[in-house]
Design a protein around this nucleic acid. Structure first.
Lengths: 136, 136
DNA sequence: AAGGTTCATGCTCTTGCGGTTATATAGCCG
DNA sequence: CGGCTATATAACCGCAAGAGCATGAACCTT
């Protein structure tokens, strides 16, 4: 089964999942929160259903949509090998701050530039970053 | 900063990240692996760059692209509240299997249907699942 | 039976995205 | 300098995705 990144790429669909994280909901309820039309909501729900991210229970004319988190495990699995990269960096930052507690950064933002590179570029004459395409 | 799900939705871009997970690479190298044209690769790299997922170092005419995993932390953060849901289910499965080791499932696949529902639908007369839209 | 809810589906329109081709830019080497 | 290499950008195209509207289907209520 393909990783459902494309399904999650849609903000409304992520919002639906977030809402279903609290509790199961009716289509009308979701529609109200999303601020789009009911057919629009239904369409997103269909995509989520086919991706196995939600389940439906019928109750007369109503449909209770509930979360089905299993496919998200695949996203988590894809993320796994990357996770250690930024935790490594954060660890390095912590060690750094631990070594020199006089460091004057008030922000909690990890100052990546301060941390020794995890993956080193093979013997490239360390040229400053390319401003190149950045300025569009 | 918005969660870069839309950037990750593209298979080629995920593949690029996977390749950069090993080591920094040149555009040509990536192009070869991806099986698309060089401009196509450059375009994806631009998107990844603007999302802060990769960095560039220039080396004469060459460009070494390297991974920049920090934005993935946001994905991880979004995933966090969901993670406990499926781990809960797996835990329940483990406890289940622990209780009755005579269980005859040979597969390692978690048989979710066996696990008691985590979130229960509020007093809906438990009607069987809707085959409804599924059959297209 | 009639009318009102609640939701799904079909259609159309528009936009954006991914892909390719052609071209521009930058730097190397002979 | 001239040509070659490596990459970015521009212009264009086709298609699929998302949004809205109108309609259909299922079910309740009276």
């Amino acid at each position: 089964m393909a990783i459902p990144f494309d399904v999650l790429a849609e903000p409304s669909r992520r919002q639906i999942l977030d809402l279903l994280l609290e509790r199961p909901r009716l289509v009308g309820e979701l529609t109200e929160h999303l601020g789009l039309t009911q057919p629009g909501t239904s369409k997103h729900l269909r995509v989520l259903r086919e991706a196995g991210l939600v389940r439906v229970r019928r109750d007369a004319q109503r449909r209770w949509y509930e979360l089905c988190p299993e496919p998200l495990a695949e996203v988590d699995a894809w993320l796994a090998p990357y996770r250690r990269l930024w935790t490594d960096r954060l660890d390095a930052l912590e060690r750094h701050l631990d070594t020199m507690p006089e460091s004057l950064d008030a922000t909690g933002e990890p100052d990546v530039a301060d941390v020794p590179d995890v993956a080193d570029v093979p013997d490239v004459p360390d040229v400053p970053d390319v401003p190149d395409g950045e300025a569009r």
